[in-house]
């Protein structure tokens, strides 16, 4: 399985907590387009085998493959935040970035034919709206290392109590 090795923050979903309600999709599409249309969401819920449910958004890979394959240099990565940015004038909707993404986190807007990628709601004061709205706190904006630290703390607590 391919995983992001990112030092950057990105939005992850805890499948144990996710109930498949899709509210993240409505909120995302509303925030980004002004209308409710989960088809236009930059985070996508997935349900397979009836009980396996999660949500996926851009994982801000280091040396992001989508940026590397873009034939028109339309994609670039912010060195501070890892967020992938799109130059609308350069993008021609060729979809190479979609092919390159191991997480299925990029889509092409059917109307504008431009690539759309999660930008962690960097323009929103309250941060990522999907994280804010998730009723089960299944979504969070953290780095892999932050999650590893938490896992170690949880393990330490459990083993100490044993």
């Amino acid at each position: 399985m391919v995983t992001s090795t990112s030092r950057y923050k990105y939005i992850t979903c805890d499948p144990e907590k996710c109930i498949g309600c899709q509210l993240c999709e409505y909120i995302c599409s509303y925030t980004k387009t002004g209308e409710y249309n989960s088809y236009r969401s930059r985070i996508r819920t997935v349900r397979v085998d009836e009980i396996l449910i999660t949500a996926v958004a851009c994982r801000t890979c280091e040396n992001a493959p989508c940026v590397m394959v873009c034939t028109r240099d339309a994609l670039s990565q912010d060195q501070e935040s890892g967020i992938i940015r799109l130059d609308k004038d350069r993008c021609d909707g060729c979809a190479w970035c979609i092919e390159a993404c191991d997480f299925g986190a990029i889509s092409i807007n059917p109307m504008t034919k431009l690539a759309e990628i999660c930008d962690q709601c960097e323009d929103e004061e309250a941060g990522p709206q999907c994280v804010l709205w998730c009723p089960k706190d299944a979504l969070e904006l953290t780095t892999p290392d932050q999650r590893a630290q938490r896992a170690r703390r949880k393990l330490a607590t459990e083993e100490a109590l044993r």
Partner: peptide, 15 residues
């Protein structure tokens, strides 16, 4: 697992 319908923050379905 507890599952919700789309758009539901409750998740009552007790699989």
């Amino acid at each position: 697992k507890k599952i919700a319908c789309a758009q539901c923050p409750i998740a009552c379905e007790q699989v």
